[in-house]
Design a protein around this nucleic acid. Structure first.
Lengths: 334, 334
DNA sequence: GTATGTCTCGTTATCGGTAACAAGTGGGAT
DNA sequence: ATCCCACTTGTTACCGATAACGAGACATAC
């Protein structure tokens, strides 16, 4: 038999109906020990691998949950994905991942692609989506979770933190510790909504103390240690008086620290540093860089749990929306 | 209409047959402008999202490629995945990811799960698989690529480097530069086949110079900067005379550097460091840690290209097996 | 006018499973 | 012997698309 064996082959070999074979292999309903054994043996000898495609079509249910993230080459999202995997495990649902590259049009395509597989749920990052995406999501009769961000109107389930607030709190903290000449290093606007929200909150926090961002550097592409290091150098060149820099990510703030280490700049005496995320990476550095911890694993896990337990529209608003708090970790650099 | 609209709904609204609607929506075959427009409009007004499940079952072809990796919370694999995405793009195939946690039994489950979706190809990491996995893979009439490692017998397509050789070359390099008291820090054996192969090659390289690994520290779980830092401290405590440490990964070697920076140990005068992977992360550090660059993005992209262009058994052995070279980057720490 | 070819579009028969319901089978109670 | 019930197992009808083939309409060529 050159073609993949089907249920029919198994059934024929076990001399039962396809239905019985199907039941035995899925472990549902009753079956005598005798037939059970025969079916199992038959499946093994023909090397049967079930065809999910057919099964899904027939039963109108797919054990997949679509997960759409901006990027996977970032610790932030890999931790979220790990959390999602963990949260999905008890339900037997499988995550399938899609990547948007921080682009709403790409996201639209990915969402359509995902929905075409008729998944049991969808998990997206952020609250910003194209019109068309929103329409598709509303029409899809499945639970949809938006994670990481709570500054906006969720479609259905929402688990995350307020990035505006995270930025605001960090500004307050920095101001309270006496810094006055404050710079910012982050991604180019529009690319990363959440980073922009943090910056907005940060700016507001400074403004309440009569301050503003002295100077800033922006970059495009993924955040990396090297980028952080280079832009820190550039920023300090422009504004040597700078006494504190707020970064849009922990990778870049680590880069800032590296610049200081390599150039003998005393942290935090000469320059204070603060980032965002709470990445494990920071733990290993000579100084722990200040950050806001956005429990990413938790978020993923929680969202996955909610998606699996919810039929769309089933949960009350309180259960559906989970606002976590980004706790500031002062570290050694403020 | 509460249920998701199907092709039938579109066809009915456009007053054509389902077949015609199908053809128009897939853009194949001929259709008059008039009907094309009607179908497209109908699809838009009912909010049609094609059902891949049904389409795949009917056409017996699925535009998915399964990708099975040990972990996603590691830069190494996220770069590979990025490469795979890039390599798959031109063919219109979609990657779907599965995670094994470095466990062969889990891998077996994941492979079975993947195959049950009847993907057009499969990409796995490494050459070590369970008996059952091997059987399933051989029976699957699809191209299978094993990537990252070439030390062993591939099933079909194989793209990677020789880790044994990478370790061996690094040992030669280290010996040539005059280091004699050499330590090793890596994952616990069995967890990571490729790290063990590097260690074996490394040990062999040392042996040829009459040397051996003076002392080593092992860890379980993912490699992190912190782990590298802590184990470096421990190793140096045990063997203060150590003049060089070889790490199984760049994350841990970076941790080693952090330990040295934090404790005023001069690199490479007092202690030399070398890692493996060639992660971008290293670029931002005050000193660039020596490493073997295993072009991961390339590997992923190449493998994806081969998988898409190959019907199983179609390629000659030379085309099927691509051995890349892990070039040593001396950096500033040897 | 008939034949031939080109475009378009429709009909039929699956693809490989599963839900829902139907139907044997044998044992125990009456 | 009859009836009922619990267990098992089988039958039928799809799920939503697509491949393969067929057929009508119209134009061109002879």
């Amino acid at each position: 038999m050159r073609n993949k064996p089907t249920l029919k082959d198994v059934a024929k070999l076990a001399r039962v109906s396809e239905m019985t074979a199907s039941r035995v292999l899925r472990g549902i309903g009753e079956a005598s020990e005798h037939t059970k054994e025969r079916v199992l043996n038959a499946a093994k000898t023909v090397g049967y691998v079930p065809n999910r495609i057919a099964g899904a079509l027939s039963s109108r249910s797919v054990n997949l949950v679509g997960v759409v993230v901006p990027s996977i080459s970032s610790f932030v999202f890999s931790e979220v994905l790990t959390g999602i995997s963990a949260g999905l495990k008890p339900s037997g649902l499988q995550p399938i991942f899609g990547i948007t590259d921080y682009d709403l049009e790409t996201e639209e395509t990915v969402i359509r692609e995902m929905l075409s597989w008729r998944p049991s749920g969808l998990i997206l990052v952020g609250l910003e989506h194209s019109e068309v995406s929103l329409r598709m999501l509303q029409n899809a009769a499945i639970p949809v979770a938006e994670i990481m961000d709570t500054d906006g109107d969720p479609i259905d389930i929402n688990v995350g933190i307020s990035h505006h607030d995270a930025g605001y709190q960090m500004a307050k903290t920095i101001v309270a510790r006496g810094y006055r000449k404050i710079g910012y290093i982050g991604t180019q606007a529009k690319q990363d909504f959440r980073a922009e929200k943090r910056l907005a909150g940060f700016t507001k926090g400074l403004a309440e103390a009569g301050l503003s961002v002295l100077a800033s550097e922006r970059f495009s592409g993924g955040s990396s240690v090297l980028t952080g290091r280079e832009l820190t150098a550039r920023l300090l060149e422009r504004e040597p008086e700078m006494d504190c820099i707020y970064y849009s990510s922990d990778m870049t703030s680590a880069g800032g620290l590296m610049h200081c280490l390599a150039n003998g700049i005393k942290v935090p005496d000469q320059l204070a540093l603060a980032g965002f995320s709470g990445l494990d990476l920071l733990e290993g550095l000579p100084l722990k860089v200040a950050t806001s911890n956005a429990s990413r694993f938790e978020m993923g896990k929680l969202a996955a749990g909610l998606v699996t337990s919810a039929k769309k529209g089933t949960l009350s608003a309180e259960d559906r929306i989970v606002k976590l708090e980004a706790k500031i970790d002062i570290g050694d650099t403020l």
